[in-house]
Design a protein around this nucleic acid. Structure first.
Lengths: 158, 158
DNA sequence: GGAGATTAGGTTATAATGTTGCAATTCTAC
DNA sequence: GTAGAATTGCAACATTATAACCTAATCTCC
């Protein structure tokens, strides 16, 4: 399992390591982690809940960044391209990737109560893809899986 | 495999059987397959491509149905609730379910060229869900998987 | 079969999310 | 240092989805 969101942890470590992995990855790829891009990444990592593009706008504005939709979407697209964040389609929201660098399908569990998301290892999704390729002749290029339900904490407090 | 979209077939049969299954299911559940609802279902089944809610509006208008967004969204919500259609989140679009009635995760392959979608059996998605439940203590209630790539036909013509 | 409850649909407005196009700036590599 | 590429600023707009409120149809139960 990539990392367990439900275990107590010092969240600053999450943010810091996300940023340093991003820096390294950009270095490696010859991409530029500009201030807006880095700040957007940090804001996405502010917690383990997927965040909407429009939620980021006012935060960027507060800090003197330009804040029009294209600014945020461009930063998010950049981060998506590098695999630094994933998009949770069913929520129109974005969340930090826990293991960027390695190509992998997007696979998350999202709690419908608290909204926290847990990235999952997704070997089985690859199985689905390979099976579809074998049986139907399709060629799979991208994969995403989203599970919804209740996280352990929200089950307990229900 | 539920049904192979890439095989030649008489598509009227798809539409007709979708409607009769819907009728049966509504009967069984004490739900009402009103004219708008049935027409929306037929339009969703017009082909094997996911269709946007706003694409349906003008078609309904042509036929004298009321056509404001709420009308379509209400019909789609109804069909979603009964499991007669699925929502493809990554496209903000809707597609007919090939085996309504049986509860099952939404699992599709979508061709990025032609837009056609193929529903997949998703036993592996259930495996992912059970594994997440066992390892993380989450409770999964809904599941969706979306694969993107090239269908056999579009690979051939590339 | 009629009163009250429930469900469905009509209508208007608006919210939320995402994109296009173009000009200005900054960076990079030669 | 200058050309070309990448990035950002900015304004407008496109697309998708929902809220709120009301009317009409249908069902239920006596």
């Amino acid at each position: 399992m990539t990392q367990n969101v439900y275990k107590a942890h010092d969240h600053h470590v999450c943010i810091d390591s996300a940023v340093s992995r991003a820096r390294a990855l950009c270095e490696e790829q010859g991409a530029r982690l500009t201030p807006v891009r880095q700040r957007v990444l940090e804001l996405v990592w502010a917690n383990h809940k997927p965040v909407g593009a429009y939620d980021l706008l006012p935060k960027l504005a507060e800090e003197g960044f330009n804040s029009a939709p294209p600014t945020v979407y461009r930063a998010l697209d950049f981060l998506l391209d590098l695999g630094l964040v994933h998009r949770i389609s069913s929520l129109n929201a974005f969340i930090g990737c826990t293991h960027p660098g390695e190509a992998h399908p997007s696979c998350f569990f999202v709690c419908r109560e608290c909204g926290e998301a847990q990235e999952l290892d997704a070997e089985q999704v690859n199985t689905i893809a390979r099976q579809a390729e074998a049986m139907l002749g399709v060629k799979v290029e991208q994969q995403m899986t989203e599970l919804m339900g209740l996280c352990p904490r929200c089950q307990a407090s229900a």
